[in-house]
Design a protein around this nucleic acid. Sequence first.
DNA 1: TGGTTTGTTCGGAATGAGCCGAACAAACGA
DNA 2: TCGTTTGTTCGGCTCATTCCGAACAAACCA
Lengths: 167, 167
Amino acid sequence: MSDDDSAVARERIIESLEQSAEVYGLSRSAGRIYGVLYFAAAPLSIPELVEETGYAKSTVSNVTRTLSRIGLIHRRSSEGGGRRVRFEAEREVWFILQDVFQQYIQREIQTTLRTVRRAEEQLPADAREQERVRNLRETYEDLQEIVQLTSEYSAGELREALENYER
Amino acid sequence: MSDDDSAVARERIIESLEQSAEVYGLSRSAGRIYGVLYFAAAPLSIPELVEETGYAKSTVSNVTRTLSRIGLIHRRSSEGGGRRVRFEAEREVWFILQDVFQQYIQREIQTTLRTVRRAEEQLPADAREQERVRNLRETYEDLQEIVQLTSEYSAGELREALENYER
DNA sequence: TGGTTTGTTCGGAATGAGCCGAACAAACGA
DNA sequence: TCGTTTGTTCGGCTCATTCCGAACAAACCA
């Protein structure tokens, strides 16, 4: 009974993670694999993940690689005996988000900002586009700074900073 | 000459927007159409957008609808004579981001949070999963609050709030 | 009224992503 | 040593997305 309840609750959350994965540009399989690892009592190997998720070995192999690259899970190689690679979920969700901010958002903002700055310099001083490009640049500069600072705080600190701010 | 330079600069930025669109889950055509509208001196109709972008009329029709729905561009109907629908870009990038936060991120967080809370209640008190689910819930509660507050401030205020925060 | 312009909707082609099974490489155990 | 287990890579299948052209509906103009 109690075990059943746990299983159901776990499954619900994993389904929710599947959906979240899609929203953030990952595959459903990535969401499920992360979810299974999130609740696993110990790091799991690829055959174990195949068993738990029902996905093909090749799928699990590919998905675990991308999840590792992004930082959602960690490879725990050389665990005890055997050369089995084992995977463990990064359970500090805030870390994950900070990583995503650093790796993707920050990067995206920076390349755009570089393009905009170059375009702005190149633009004739009297061009109609001047003001619009300047606006774009200024917003992106704010964004860059915000994202930068965000990735330096914990979720709690961030929340506090916003709650205490007096305009 | 000067016009050429402007055109080149504009094109660079539009290409950058095409790429950004992809990153944020939109099509390249959406990025280009938004870009053209961003620099347009006046709101443009669908035939004019076809002329400027080279896309088929149907494509422009579909893309403008989704961009309007998201709030990246606005329909300016009933402009002067004719029943031509005209589109204008929302140029306050921060508004757009706030909308995205409200519509997608906030929503996503809330549905996940609801699932997690329900699962937590359902869970037997002694379940192994207890702590992990609680962790998840607490982080999501922080996130919800953060996103909520974020959408109430301007980019400048947000930046200031973070810069002035003393741990 | 009939022809023109504008915008939407439909079906289809091309492309890409997700997942699978099979083949392969590498390390282990008997 | 040879068979087994583990993990990666490859080609192919399926489905969704993107975009196109054609057909259609609605409003305008002559």
